[in-house]
C-alpha cells in the first residue's frame, strides 16, 4: 500500500515532529510503568516474542483487492492480546527498531509514527474494543466481532490522527480536507483488512488458548465453548457496510465545505507565502499553511477527529491506568 503509515522523514514540519515526540515519550513512559506492574517475570519473554510476532505480522501481506495488498499494523491486536499498555509498548518498540535498523519510516518521524501507529492504535483500538463488547453478545462470536471492529477502527483513528497532525505541520499546500479524506478513505479499506485479520486471529487464539487474551480476562472459559461460527461472507459484508457508513460520514465533511477550497488556499495562504521567502524557508513556515487558510471548516473537522482520537485514546488510557484497576487473573494455566 502506498499510504502505509510508516511516514518517512520530513513528512510533517519539525515543530510537529518534536511535539509528537514529546507526547509519545510521555505516554509510552506511562505505558511502561503500567506494564512493568502487569508483566510478571514470566511475561517479559512473552512480550518480547509478541513484539517479534507483531514485527513479522507487519510483513504479512494480505490481499485487499485483485493485485493490491495491505499489511497488518497490529496495534489493536497487540492491545487485545496483551493489554493496551503492554500492547502500546510492544508496538512502539517495533516501530522504533524498524526505523533505527531497517529504515522503515524516518528516524525524525518517530514522534508521529509512534503516536499514530502504536499509541493511537493500541489505546484507541482497545477503547473501541471495550465499547463494542458492550454491544455484542458475551460469547466467542461477540468477542471476535468486537475485536474486528476495534482493529478496523484503530486504523481509521490512526489515519485521522495523521490528518490532524498535518493540520499543524503541513509541509505542502494540500488542504487538510483533502488529506483527511484521502487518508481516511484509503485506510478504511486497509481497516477492513486489519479488522478481518485481527478478528480471525483473535478467534484462533480464543479457540486454543483463551487464557492468553488479555481483553477477555473477565470472562469464564466456558463462555468460549459457545462458538457459533460466523461465515466469512457475513464478516466481509459487515466490514464493507461499516466502511461505507464511515465513508459517507467522512465525505459529508468534504462536501459540506465550500467548493474551491484550493482556490481559497491559494488566495490567502500561499499568495502571501510565495512573496515572503524568509518565512517560507524557515522551519516554522509550514506551520500555518493550510490550517489558517480555511479556518472554519478545518477547525470543525479537526475538532471532530481530534476529539474522537483523544476520546478513544483517553478512554483507553483511563481504563488501563486509571484507579479502576482490575484484579490480576492473568497467570496462564500451563507450565
Amino acid at each position: 500500500m502506498l499510504l502505509a503509515l510508516h511516514a518517512p522523514d520530513g513528512f510533517l514540519s519539525a515543530p510537529v515532529a518534536f511535539a509528537t515526540a514529546f507526547i509519545s515519550v510521555v505516554i509510552v513512559g506511562a505505558a511502561l510503568r503500567q506494564s512493568g506492574r502487569e508483566l510478571k517475570d514470566k511475561q517479559v519473554p512473552l512480550a518480547g516474542i509478541a513484539a517479534a510476532f507483531i514485527f513479522a505480522a507487519q510483513m504479512f501481506n494480505f490481499p485487499v483487492a485483485s493485485g493490491t495488498t495491505g499489511h497488518l499494523l497490529g496495534g489493536a491486536l497487540a492491545a487485545i492480546l496483551l493489554g493496551p499498555a503492554t500492547g502500546a509498548l510492544v508496538v512502539t518498540i517495533v516501530v522504533v527498531v524498524q526505523a533505527l535498523l531497517f529504515a522503515d519510516g524516518g528516524l525524525s518521524a518517530l514522534g508521529y509514527n509512534v503516536l499514530n501507529m502504536a499509541i493511537v492504535t493500541s489505546f484507541g483500538g482497545y477503547a473501541v474494543f471495550l465499547l463494542a463488547r458492550k454491544l455484542m453478545p458475551r460469547n466467542a462470536g461477540g468477542i471476535v466481532g468486537a475485536a474486528g471492529l476495534a482493529a478496523a477502527a484503530s486504523v481509521v483513528l490512526s489515519a485521522m490522527a495523521f490528518s490532524v497532525e498535518w493540520l499543524f505541520g503541513a509541509t505542502a499546500p494540500i488542504d487538510f480536507d483533502n488529506v483527511f479524506t484521502a487518508m481516511v478513505g484509503v485506510h478504511l479499506l486497509i481497516g477492513v483488512g486489519e479488522g478481518l485479520i485481527s478478528a480471525l486471529a483473535i478467534g484462533a487464539v480464543l479457540a486454543s488458548r483463551p487464557d492468553l487474551v488479555y481483553g477477555v480476562r473477565d470472562l469464564k472459559r466456558s463462555t468460549f465453548a459457545d462458538r457459533t461460527p460466523v461465515p466469512m461472507r457475513t464478516f466481509v459484508a459487515g466490514g464493507i457496510l461499516a466502511a461505507v457508513v464511515m465513508a459517507t460520514v467522512v465525505s459529508q465533511f468534504a462536501v459540506d465545505s465550500p467548493d474551491g477550497l484550493e482556490t481559497v488556499a491559494e488566495d490567502t495562504g500561499f499568495a502571501d507565502q510565495a512573496t515572503d521567502h524568509a518565512l517560507d524557508s524557515s522551519i516554522f513556515a509550514d506551520y500555518a499553511t493550510t490550517g489558517v487558510a480555511n479556518e472554519s471548516v478545518s477547525l470543525a473537522i479537526a475538532g471532530f477527529s481530534g476529539g474522537a482520537i483523544s476520546l478513544a485514546v483517553g478512554y483507553g488510557l483511563f481504563l488501563t491506568m486509571g484507579p479502576r484497576r482490575r484484579s490480576e487473573s492473568r497467570e496462564t494455566a500451563t507450565v
Binding site: K42, F53, F62, A201, L212, V335
Partner: peptide
Amino acid sequence: PRWLWQAKPIASAAGAMFVRSYERGERVH
C-alpha cells in the same frame, strides 16, 4: 488469495502463529 474474503487462511494462520509463539515463550521461560 486475490480478494479480501479469501484471506481467512492467512488470518487463521496468524492466530495459530501467535499461539505457537506464545507457547514458545512459555518454554523459553
